[in-house]
Design a protein around this nucleic acid. Structure first.
Lengths: 360, 360
DNA sequence: CTGTTAGCGCTTTCAT
DNA sequence: ATGAAAGCGCTAACAG
């Protein structure tokens, strides 16, 4: 009735691999014990009371065979993949690199691997379209960093552990964001302290959550301080920054200080100011809400607000794992460390071109 | 003896998910057939000759239940994870974004997901230290884009399907690279065509494979054309570019044209030229081997060579999958599309500052 | 045309 | 202190 077990060679060998990976049963055989014993030992089962002798035999056999647990089998048994998926818009903007780095590192520390899925920047897909990764149990949860908050994307991700990173989701309770309002305050404190009374913000589209929060904070603060505020929304590209600036310079009273939402826009803004013969910081003070080392090496070094991006990435991973494990959770705002990096692009209004950042 | 099957509720429900994911057996039950039939139908088994009636019943049940195959179970059964791991240095350099994008897209087309692992740029780990991902069968193969080619890393990755991306591995046969030599030729043709006879290359450390190949090509071509060549290696940062340039300007006959290996270095190079009062392109023509849109918006727009990065990423995925599937393979060089993007930073030697790129 | 059977490699009660 | 056995969800012969 029962046929003899087929020989081991019958299984597919990976193209480049000679030897098969060793399994629990292989090391059990070598150690002369049962696989369950091996499993217990290798997992450091708390309820273990293994004879030191067999313990050693198992460990050395495992080491000698270079044993690696099969993550798929384990995932299947435990119904837990040990992987997270990061849905992220792969833009040239360097903030994503710092964010990714923070997440990868924290995830590694917590025993998870991270799969990165690109969100096409041109035609964004709703976050919902990534849940299949969890449903196929390739991942235990989703880190969603897509920037948009538009109606079609409002459905959200019920029934799948997830966290919105650097944006607020449609339902609250699953957001991990930074203190954009604090960044705006730093900007305004700096320039108003130097005497500026008419400031501008050039930023991305208002549908981007971070943009939305920066602009809202700016409106509120400027209103209460009696500061004139000009806001320009544009695509988050060099071209977008150029157009926004050029059009701003054409219309009405030109502000004397300007905060720019992204590095890419900043290049466009500087290009437009140069084309228009507007001196920085002499006629226009400039500050970037994206920090990048290259800012220090530009024609006129650009002052920026440095945001806690790596911390955001790490905190998002922690928050997601908490949800996966069913622990209570809520929205999170990462505030530290945030700092103003003084370089040469901000001065008193009407100051000479040679001026550089002046202390408070 | 045999206890009654425990109720279904006994399994762990994910924190945020109410309903469990539906399984093959669930839809088999709903359709009144056996799971193997469902499997065959859903996988479009070529040897299928299913009665259209049951076929429809199965499909509708699956659709109605929102069935998703469990990737872990499938992977376990097929001994194939359906995932690739991309080991990549998460630098600020935008070339990695384009590369990632090309890979992610191609992998998605071919039914694979991609996990990205960061290679810490500071203390690089040998490629070998990532093979555990394949050994745990989390991934079917490795895309290795770490830049270094140093002795400790020479062991390579025997026995694990892998491809070196944008660098050559220690053994040949698993490399997918771009035509760096061709890029150098474009640079030299352009500047020598304009009359330059003394050129420089400022690039990363010689241990980086792309740097090595660019410099080797430059030496060869300059020797055969009777062009004077100055080579400066420096860390691939703004700071590195600044130092290399400053030291070059101090020593001996200063070249009239300079190619720069990376965008980050380029900012440093431009800063150093500015600090030294060297006009671009009047006194020094400049070309970047990294293309990025911001180059068009700089003080003086910078001419660059645009490399086929997305194509490289896609080709690397194809090459890796070929290896995973045991198909014959070899080294690959991606040559197209590569182009010179003329902007304002290259002119005839000794030309006036206002000059911009001149045709051939 | 469809059902039966036998696992993939691992964890986890439950016995002993 | 260790072994036996069941089974995660799926696929793939092999029967009928």
């Amino acid at each position: 009735m029962t046929a003899a077990k087929p020989p081991r060679e019958s299984r597919p060998a990976s193209a480049q691999s000679g030897r098969r990976a060793s399994r629990l049963v292989d090391i059990a055989e070598a150690a002369g014990v049962h696989v369950s014993t091996v499993s217990r030992v290798l997992n450091g089962d708390p309820a273990q009371s293994i004879r030191p002798e067999t313990y050693e035999r198992i460990l050395s056999a495992a080491r000698q065979q270079g044993y690696r647990p099969n993550a798929m089998a384990r995932a299947l048994k435990r119904s837990r993949a040990g992987a997270l998926t990061f849905v992220i818009p792969l833009l040239r903007n360097p903030i994503w690199v710092k964010l990714q780095r923070g997440s990868l590192q924290r995830a590694a520390e917590r025993g998870y691997v991270v799969m990165i899925m690109e969100e096409p920047a041109e035609e964004p897909r709703p976050p919902d379209s990534y849940r299949y990764l969890v449903e196929e149990s390739r991942a235990d949860g989703l880190l969603v960093a897509t920037a948009l908050r538009i109606p079609e994307h409002a459905a959200g991700l019920p029934a799948v552990p997830h966290v919105y990173v650097n944006r607020r989701g449609p339902h609250r309770g699953n957001d991990v964001v930074m203190d954009e309002s604090g960044a705006v305050r730093i900007f305004l404190d700096h320039v108003t302290g130097l005497g500026h009374r008419s400031v501008a913000i050039i930023d991305g589209p208002p549908e981007v959550d971070t943009v939305h929060r920066r602009v809202a904070a700016a409106r509120r603060m400027c209103a209460s301080r009696g500061i004139r505020l000009t806001v320009r929304h544009a695509p988050p590209t060099e071209e977008g920054g150029w157009r926004a600036t050029t059009s701003m310079l054409r219309q009405g009273p030109v502000p004397t200080a300007c905060g720019v939402g992204s590095l890419n826009q900043l290049f466009g803004v500087m290009g437009a100011l140069r084309d228009a013969g507007v001196a920085v910081p002499g006629t226009m003070s400039l500050l970037s809400f994206d920090e990048d080392e290259c800012l220090a090496f530009l024609d006129v070094p650009v002052t920026s607000v440095s945001m806690p991006l790596a911390e955001l990435g790490g905190a998002a991973v922690d928050a997601l794992i908490a949800r996966i494990e069913g622990r209570p959770a809520g929205d999170l705002m990462i505030r530290e460390p945030m700092s103003l990096l003084l370089r040469g692009s901000v001065s008193r209004p009407g100051a000479q071109p040679a001026a550089s950042d002046v202390e408070g």
